[in-house]
Design a binder for these strands. Structure first.
Length: 503
RNA sequence: CGGGGCGUGGCGCAGCCUGGUAGCGCACCUGCUUUGGGAGCAGGGAGUCGUAGGUUCAAAUCCUAUCGCCCCGACCA
């Protein structure tokens, strides 16, 4: 029995965190490996989550004046080399299209037709700054054309050496916003406006608390003046960069000649921003909330908020229970809740409980003959929203059928809050002040965020990375000014920065 | 690109060392009994053992080559 259970269950986090993560993704049917190395198939359970994320983010972008557009997946190779830093940052991971036709191969099968060699190879976009700004140069002529606030939802390709489901795959889905402004101030406001949207999305929808801050120079986006980010802590104490918003200054504007005539008739280069979040957020969500039972999805992002599991002994009882269950389902659906009635036969209720827990459905509703008799049902949140009472193994709430919809809604609400609170508590319990570098070298092994003084030099940063694998995750915006000394070299420092090992 | 591991019914594995013509669990199909935390019994279908060579009377097993995938590290969202 124990062995059978092992086969169905996920590997416990304590045993092998990385295997646990993989098990969750595969067994909850979020994604699967594809025939192409490094690429994954996002299955309906995973894609539904992405769609809900898209919907929430997209409406926040729209509410702040952004509009969607779509640019080509192929970029002329020469575009990549127009901005020096940018090409250096991405050259190593670009897929290149060199032919436009297949022909018969000598040994059978097909091969690229040598006669179809492209004059200029095309790069599969690793990000779209270059091709978008080539167009911006064409569209922007006057200060009246600014600001230009575009976003696109797209797939991109980065040929990574090592991939992990959702966290880093060769192809992934994301949104990339690209804006052009008349002044640096406006551009910077945009950078911060978007970062705040990302923070709010992470905290309010994903229930994942994030730090916001600026990247050190060595961690910033290739071609940017400044990169701001949201950083989340995973349950193994590692950091996950979950979104970035870049101040591009005029670097790309100069490279692509994106300029406008101001009120006085003079020509000026635009100030630009770019920002993005990707399907990596799904990885963040999994690693922030899920447990050894399986996936945990916050109610606000779940496609299915509740699953109803009917319980019965015989045909008569079955009919009665299913009738009530169906009515309950209709009531939930009418209230705008995603609900599934699991009326599959020959599967025991216990089996269904485990399966839906594995898939992360926020609330399970049990309804059996006893409940029908008393006009109630039993609601079980995926994660407890309150302290368990004496003798209580898991939180089960008995809800009168009459007021069930409202009760479920508030239970979902409580769950959303509980998940955030739990994640925040976890982060706080794994955040430390580090003043002594040699102690830090020991402590970093256990994971967590370490707030330490840093002199600002890349040399100290490199040394730490070399010796501990930890990097500066961000220079937090809300960090207090505090006189101190770099914990590596002892030079003066005005503020603590956040160090951690990262994905 | 280094280090490790793995390719055997749909999934997870055993068998390989010591060659003898493929087995277990789960899943699936049928029937009956079941259903408040992963149900039981009976019957059934399904695998050219990653690929290509070689050794041998005989290869999942030994030898050689090759392909692929996963994990860990260096690069990155």
């Amino acid at each position: 029995m124990a062995k059978e259970r092992d086969e169905k269950a996920v590997t416990p986090r304590s045993e092998d965190y990385s295997q646990w993560y993989q098990d969750i993704v595969l067994k909850a049917e979020m994604a699967d490996y594809s025939p192409v190395k490094g690429c994954m198939v996002i299955r309906p359970n995973g894609y539904a989550l992405w769609e809900n994320m898209q919907r929430a983010l997209d409406s926040m972008f729209k509410a702040t004046g952004h509009v969607n557009a779509y640019f080509p997946i192929f970029i002329p190779m020469s575009f990549l080399s127009k901005e020096a830093e940018h090409v250096e940052g991405f050259a190593k991971e670009c897929a290149v299209v060199t032919h436009h036709r297949l022909g018969a191969a000598p040994g059978g099968g097909v091969q690229p037709d040598p006669d179809s060699l492209l004059e200029e190879p095309l790069v599969v976009r690793p990000t779209s700054e270059t091709i978008m700004y080539a167009m911006y140069a064409k569209w922007i002529k006057s200060y009246r054309d600014l600001p230009l606030l575009l976003n696109q939802w797209a797939n991109i390709v980065r040929w990574e050496m090592r991939t992990r489901l959702f966290l880093r795959t060769t192809e992934f889905l994301w949104q990339e916003g690209h804006t052009a402004h008349a002044t640096h101030e406006e551009a910077w406001e945009e950078v911060m406006r978007i970062l705040d949207i990302y923070r709010r999305f992470a905290e309010e929808w994903m229930a994942v608390p994030v730090l916001t801050g600026v990247k050190s120079d060595s961690e910033k986006f290739a071609g940017a003046l400044k990169t701001t980010c949201i950083e989340a802590m995973m349950q193994d104490g590692k950091a996950l960069q979950s979104g970035t918003s870049h101040d591009l200054g005029q670097n790309f504007a100069k490279a692509f000649d994106v300029k406008f005539q101001d009120e006085k008739g003079g020509w000026q280069y635009c100030w630009q921003t770019s920002w993005g979040v990707s399907t990596r957020l799904i990885g963040a969500l999994i690693m922030a909330h899920s447990d050894d039972q399986g996936l945990v999805i916050p109610p606000k992002l779940a496609a299915t908020q509740a699953v109803i599991v009917p319980i019965y002994r015989d045909d008569a009882g079955r009919a009665k229970v299913l009738e009530v269950a169906a009515r309950l389902k209709a009531d939930f659906a009418a209230a705008g809740l995603g609900v599934v009635l699991d009326d599959r036969e020959n599967l025991s209720p216990g089996f269904k409980y485990n399966e839906w827990e594995l898939k992360g459905v926020p609330v399970r509703i049990e309804i059996g003959p006893r409940d029908v008799e008393q006009g109630v049902c039993v609601a079980v949140p995926r994660v407890a929203t309150r302290e368990l009472r004496e003798g209580e193994k898991r939180q089960k709430e008995t809800l009168p059928l009459a007021s069930c919809v409202g009760a479920l809604k508030s239970l979902l609400d409580d769950l959303q809050k509980a998940l955030f609170a739990r994640a925040l508590k976890f982060r706080e319990e794994h955040s430390y002040r580090a003043d002594d570098y040699s102690a830090f070298k020991q402590d970093i092994e256990k994971g967590g965020f370490f707030y330490a003084h840093w002199c600002g030099s890349a040399a100290c940063e490199d040394k730490v990375k070399e010796e501990t694998k930890a990097t500066i995750r961000c220079i937090p915006f809300d960090g207090e000014k505090e006189e101190g000394r770099c914990f590596v070299c002892g030079a003066p420092s005005q503020q603590r920065v956040v160090w951690a090992r990262a994905y």
